[in-house]
């Protein structure tokens, strides 16, 4: 058993033994296999070592923090805060380029435009929800992703893909699975980390930790804040794992 696996096992055991502690802390329950990077993030590691990391977040309404108490509660802002708290010597800049109802191709254009203006070392790309909801062609999404990810790699930029948000309503009323499968395949093909947001949110909903669709309206904003906090923690964990992998393979 490798030391990492042993550690993970011990953590899991710990989580099982002290379930009561969770409610009080601000930590979120992050199943290790859902925040595994699975691929190195060399450009991110270099930038952090050099003391300055610029992150570009691209996506739809979910990255804009819809339903939260304010822009500071959206997960990209929370991610920046978490990273800054963990690495005080490093300057983290997070730029969000998002719009409601953005197809993957349009998001790709937005991404290229922003990268041409101010290059980032790390791109976080949330996509697929709009395509699934509207039933847009899966191949179009894959083509747009393949093209843009190829360009990012050529430019030496790291990229992380982000799955759509889990929702029972969306699952029941849109055919989401083909889009999820395609995202998983694209991430694996390009050797990119994929934040398993769908699976994470499903896990949180099933274990009744954060479940927006079952939260009364009065508590909805607080729950959305909590969700964004947990997503930020998940992304931070995934980035740490990716940087560690890059360090190992150096």
């Amino acid at each position: 058993m490798s030391s990492a696996r042993l550690l993970r096992w011990l953590l899991l055991l710990g989580a099982l033994l002290v379930p009561a502690a969770r409610a009080g802390t601000r930590g979120c329950d992050l199943p290790p296999d859902l925040v595994e990077a699975g691929a190195p993030l060399p450009a991110t590691l270099r930038a952090v070592t050099a003391g300055r990391l610029r992150i570009l977040v691209v996506g739809g309404v979910s990255v804009l923090g819809a339903g939260t108490s304010g822009p500071e509660a959206a997960w990209p802002a929370r991610l920046r805060a978490l990273l800054a708290a963990r690495r005080p010597g490093v300057e983290f800049e997070v730029t969000v380029r998002a719009r409601q109802g953005l197809s993957t191709a349009e998001a790709g254009d937005l991404l290229a435009e922003e990268m041409a203006r101010t290059p980032a070392q790390l791109v976080l790309w949330a996509t697929g929800t709009f395509s699934a909801a509207k039933g847009l062609e899966v191949d179009d999404m894959v083509e747009a992703l393949n093209e843009r990810l190829e360009q990012l790699r050529a430019a030496g930029t790291d990229a992380v893909l982000i799955e759509p948000q889990f929702s029972r309503f969306l699952r029941a009323n849109a055919n989401v699975e083909p889009y999820l499968d395609a995202l998983r395949l694209v991430a694996a093909t390009h050797q990119l980390p994929l934040l398993r947001r769908w699976e994470l949110m499903r896990h949180w909903a099933e274990t009744e930790q954060v479940d927006l669709e079952r939260t009364p309206k009065a508590e909805r904003v607080a729950a959305t804040d909590r969700l964004n906090e947990c997503l930020a923690q998940a992304m931070a964990a995934l980035l740490r794992d990716g940087a560690a992998e890059a360090r190992r393979s150096r």
Partner: peptide, 22 residues
């Protein structure tokens, strides 16, 4: 009818509202 019913029992969270799923 199913989507309508589904949407009516769902006290819709913000991001779903903005998807215009229906």
């Amino acid at each position: 009818a199913q989507v309508g019913y589904s949407a009516s029992i769902l006290d819709s969270p913000a991001y779903l509202d903005e998807l215009h799923l229906d």
